[in-house]
Design a protein around this nucleic acid. Structure first.
Lengths: 246, 246
DNA sequence: CGTTGTGGTTGACGTGGATCAACGGTCTTT
DNA sequence: AAAGACCGTTGATCCACGTCAACCACAACG
């Protein structure tokens, strides 16, 4: 596991500030004024680069920092003693990792890079300190946490009340939206996760996920080729969620 | 629906401060020093009393305040267009309601009293303001939100990876712990919610919940009489979660 | 260029929990 | 104290998804 050694690479020299960052619009500083943004210099202490499959933090690790994804993508998961895995989320650039650690001072899940990725390391102490100085930062941070809670409730809805095809439709619509928010196509994209990981997230087996893909394909709502997805009929996907029984 | 009118009752005259409150230990101020506690005067603007089945807030309501439960209990839920309900949580005294509203400035779920209850109304603007003054309040609030996220991840685990009996066992253990934290018995307690509400929370039908109760009873892990539960063998319940297949 | 491994699809079959239905117990209301 | 609504239990049946298994696509590597 000497993977983790090579992961602790600090970006050489130059640390660009939040105000220069091109993914600001879907990150922590979203909606802050010019002057407030200037106050964020020094919020990001270092960067950290991870290769595919490397772990940013593990359940039980002491909590010190939160992480803003600069590039790449992650999954977070929890393991039960008997080996069952539950993927609790997939994260994209601009999204914040590590919020689970604040309450207990240690992380409660694992965060794993799904591709070569880079994160901004934000020391939690620094965040708290700057929150006192930079009007607006505190509120932004609260919003980020609140949205995470709302997202989680959406996943509960999905896991507790929807059938397999609905879950996949909801998942694809969600991915689509998030790609759009980042300036990518919402109708054609490449999923970084395997069918098994999607299944773990959606509370299904990989076979059921595969079959659900095929059925959405048959119904001409999407087109699939391995991890590449075309959304052919987004309203159709939405409608499917509203009509549970077939 | 003039229910809601009668609910807007402000406690007559005297508003006791957080420092006087007997459920402080499991509420927002937990872990704050004496001097910090004094700074919290004025945090709670008013109280609000609700009768059973009354709504504290609904999805779509503009967000203005969060609520600390003083007495009673609540459930939060979301509704899909087609009428499917998902209960996203059950809340007890000391726990905070309304965190879902910060991100979008409006509530994303409904909060309903499961019995006659009383909440402290904490204007969010006031909370932000006091966070700048009272060292420690900000951190406490972050902890509360973080714990909510961790709890939600636990529910995802439950919904995504556990079978019916395991879900119920996990639910009962969780309730037990929370009663203990409030100074009540963890081995004998009264559930305020119906089988249907438990089912909605656990992603099961009420019949399956009922059968799971019966099976745990048969296995001598618990004793049940309607809503009254005796935990006879807590380690046994825990063990059951670790051994998924029967 | 074949070999090996990982990931994805599809089919056959089994099963846990949903659905439908009947009934009994318990609170609420008057 | 009786009536009625609500709630909980249990049985019979059904079906969506899990399980097991075979096979195929594609990437990595010698």
């Amino acid at each position: 596991m000497q993977e983790d050694e090579t992961a602790r690479i600090v970006a050489p020299g130059f640390i660009s500030s939040c105000s220069q960052c091109n993914i600001m619009e879907c990150c922590l500083p979203f909606g802050m004024s010019e002057s407030e943004l200037d106050g964020l210099d020094g919020l990001v202490g270092t960067y950290r680069r991870l290769k595919r499959h490397q772990t940013l933090y593990r359940a039980g690790d002491p909590f010190q920092a939160i992480y803003a994804i600069r590039s790449g993508s992650f999954k977070t998961d929890i393991w039960l003693e008997d080996g069952r895995e539950q993927v609790t989320g997939f994260q994209m650039p601009g999204e914040i990792l590590g919020l689970d650690g604040i309450g207990t001072e240690e992380h409660s899940c694992n965060a794993i890079a799904m591709q070569d990725s880079e994160v901004c390391v934000i020391a939690y102490a620094k965040l708290e300190e700057l929150s006192y100085k930079v009007k607006g930062l505190q509120h932004q941070f609260h919003k980020v946490m609140s949205r995470e809670i709302v997202r989680d409730h959406g996943v509960m809805m999905l896991l507790g009340s929807m059938r397999a095809e609905e879950r996949l439709a909801a998942f694809l619509l969600n991915m689509s939206q998030r790609y759009v928010a980042r300036g990518f196509s919402g109708t054609e994209f490449h999923l970084r996760m395997t069918r098994e990981e999607i299944g773990s997230y959606l509370g299904l087996t990989l076979e059921t996920v595969s079959r659900a893909f095929s059925r959405l394909h048959d119904e001409k709502l999407i087109s699939v080729r391995q991890k590449h997805v075309w959304v052919l009929n987004a309203p159709g996907l939405k409608k499917m969620i509203r009509q549970p029984s077939r």
